[in-house]
Design a protein around this nucleic acid. Structure first.
Length: 289
DNA sequence: CGTTGAACCTGTTTGC
DNA sequence: TGCAAACAGGTTCAAC
């Protein structure tokens, strides 16, 4: 579910209501996705939420431990939504959905809740400054990078473009949906080698990635099955997908049937006519398209 | 350096 | 109908 546009949508929803609120209690269900559950229970009560922001697919909560004995110490709470994670704000008395494993009760009677069916998400707190290891390994934010930076990150790489776009050390925030949608827009096959892309192709890909992500943010993300924003509402960008999960359906440009293949270990949807396959090591072409 | 497959976990869909 | 396999927005690790 959660790629850059979905995380951005959740962040905006939380940033609209959480700053200034104080966490007054922590309740935990299953904790196998939390790095140090005891630290959450020990450190978070009493902290005040200053800001909620996004770093790649991570949500970052800036917290201030305002107690006198803690001297305004800064804390960071990092949350990754994995595949099925949800962060929502609800009245404390409202029933929580199944698989809700973290409850942060707030000083206004509401709760910030974390629900995650598959528990592929992650949750961890840091004293500020010590978080460099996790976030520092991530690559460029595609919405902040310049065209030159974007091209430089790809032009010398011999890996498949799909793998490069998915690699969080290259770009932070891209996932399976927006990678396929971006490649379709610029007619680039997911198995093309990064270094083999022309300067013109890199320029168009840069534009397509930004356009797709910005349009998806405007639509409040893609809801395939589990994704909801901080208010529990679904996104709408799934209605605008051109290739993702459209195997066997007609290409919006040329009517050819969309195909699904595995690239970089992930289902990859593309139009075999618009997105021409690169030459293989062992050519055995059928001769004609 | 780059690729592949498995693992983590639960639920839904598809196929025989 | 029933059961098993395949598949799902992500990340990480081992093996080659």
């Amino acid at each position: 579910m959660p790629e850059l546009p979905e995380v951005e949508t959740v962040v905006r929803g939380l940033q609209a209501v959480l700053p200034g609120r104080r966490i007054v209690g922590v309740r935990l269900g299953k904790t196998d996705f939390i790095d140090d559950p005891a630290a959450l229970e020990r450190e978070l009560p009493g902290t005040r939420i200053q800001r909620v922001r996004r770093h790649g697919k991570f949500l970052v909560f800036d917290l201030e431990a305002a107690d006198a004995n803690r001297g305004g110490r800064q804390l960071l709470l990092l949350v990754h939504l994995g595949m099925t994670g949800q962060l929502t704000v609800a009245p404390g008395e409202a029933p929580a959905p199944p698989h809700t494993h973290v409850f942060f009760s707030l000083d206004d009677g509401r709760e910030l809740r974390y629900t995650d069916i598959r528990r592929f998400g992650r949750m961890r707190i840091f004293s500020s400054g010590a978080q460099a290891d996790l976030l520092g390994k991530l690559g460029l934010d595609p919405l902040e990078a310049t065209e030159a930076e974007f091209a430089a990150a790809l032009h010398a790489r011999r890996a498949q473009i799909k793998a490069l776009l998915l690699d969080q050390r290259v770009f932070r925030g891209m996932g399976n949906i927006y990678t396929d949608e971006s490649l379709w827009r610029v007619r680039i096959h997911p198995r093309r080698i990064g270094a083999n892309l022309s300067a013109a192709e890199l320029r168009r890909l840069y534009r397509a990635v930004r356009d797709v992500l910005n349009e998806a943010i405007r639509s409040r993300g893609s809801s395939i099955s589990d994704y909801v924003d901080a208010d529990g509402q679904q996104g709408e960008f799934q209605l605008k997908h051109r290739v993702y999960q459209r195997e066997g359906k007609k290409c919006f440009r040329c009517k050819t049937k969309i195909r699904r293949v595995i690239v970089a270990g992930r289902s990859s949807y593309f139009c075999p006519r618009c997105q021409r396959a690169p030459r293989r090591h062992r050519p055995e072409k059928s001769g004609r398209v």
